[in-house]
Write a protein that binds this DNA or RNA. Structure first.
Length: 294
DNA sequence: CAGACGTGGTT
DNA sequence: TAACCAAGTCT
């Protein structure tokens, strides 16, 4: 498809976004680059509803990178709560420390420098660049990939992993105008989150249903490669979660005997505790006690 | 590059 | 109810 043909998608999506966008606090006019940065890390693989209260608490507690950098990494882990993937809290703390050390305490406004921060991959660098600084770049997340797969490619869902072709398509679809490009990125994400959802898309509410290749083809089922479902019950991930929860819920150091209660399999429990220590999420202290990192 | 890495709501 | 899903990153 040509760039001119793609351009026909822009206005309906931009108009739809103006009418249906959610008023999320990190999208407010007074949101800071730091607020955007924190939101993007928290939103990785995590629903908006669960992020909202934690983000608000973090912004009050640590309104600037230097505030978080001055705190103990364990405080970041503690106040991460039950968002999941707690290594993100540690990386956020490390990113704040890097901002203080190398960027005058500010979120860098450059894609390469953003990408170099811990916990920041291609998606997050682009998202912060676009949403906090208005940089014209393609933001490609799971929502965007799904919308593009359906509307343009005609497939029910995107491939298991991001491909070079998808990135190229996203760049081709980007509006020329800087301001339009920034809005386009968030608008397509929002469309994927609210209308063009994974499970049961509401095509009747979609602003580009009349141009959607997948809908035109009769919404054919996905026939590409599938990714294996992740197990949970009994995995190390579950045990790590239980151990860390015990440490978060305690005021200070926790006796090994208390940790022994969270999982009966001693070998697995020991392996997971060692892994948490290795990851820097737990500090081993004298007398067989453990704590969140100081 | 496939697999590890949390958590809880929805279908 | 088991499986799927949610603004990915790192190794």
């Amino acid at each position: 498809m040509t760039a001119a043909a793609h351009a026909g998608l822009h206005q309906p999506v931009l108009d739809w976004y103006a009418d249906h966008r959610r008023d999320l606090p990190w999208r407010a006019l007074d949101a800071t680059p730091w607020g955007v940065f924190v939101s993007e890390i928290m939103l990785q693989q995590t629903p908006v509803a669960r992020v909202l209260p934690v983000w608000t608490d973090w912004m009050t507690r640590w309104p600037a990178p230097a505030d978080l950098a001055a705190a103990a990494p364990g405080d970041a882990v503690r106040h991460w709560g039950r968002l999941g993937y707690p290594r993100r809290a540690l990386r956020l703390h490390a990113a704040a420390t890097a901002m203080v050390a190398s960027h005058d305490g500010a979120v860098p406004d450059d894609l390469e420098q953003l990408r170099a921060l811990p916990g920041v991959g291609a998606y997050t660098a682009a998202a912060v660049g676009a949403f906090a600084f208005g940089i014209r770049c393609a933001v490609v997340d799971t929502n965007v990939r799904r919308v593009h797969a359906r509307a343009v490619t005609g497939s029910a869902q995107a491939a298991p992993a991001l491909t070079a072709a998808e990135t190229r398509l996203a760049e081709e679809l980007l509006p020329r105008d800087d301001a339009d490009a920034a809005t386009w990125n968030v608008a397509v994400m929002e469309l994927g989150a609210l209308v063009c959802t994974a499970g049961s898309p509401t095509c009747e509410l979609c602003p580009i249903s009349d141009r959607c290749a997948w809908l035109a083809a009769g919404r054919p089922a996905y026939d590409g490669p599938v990714k294996r479902a992740q197990r949970w019950a009994g995995t190390d991930r579950q045990v790590r979660g239980l151990l860390l929860q015990a440490l978060r819920d305690a005021d200070g150091p926790v006796q090994q005997a208390a940790l022994d209660l969270v999982w009966s399999d001693a070998a697995q429990r020991g392996r997971c505790l060692a892994g948490l220590i290795e990851d820097g999420l737990v500090d081993p202290l004298p007398d067989r006690t453990y704590a969140l990192p100081a």
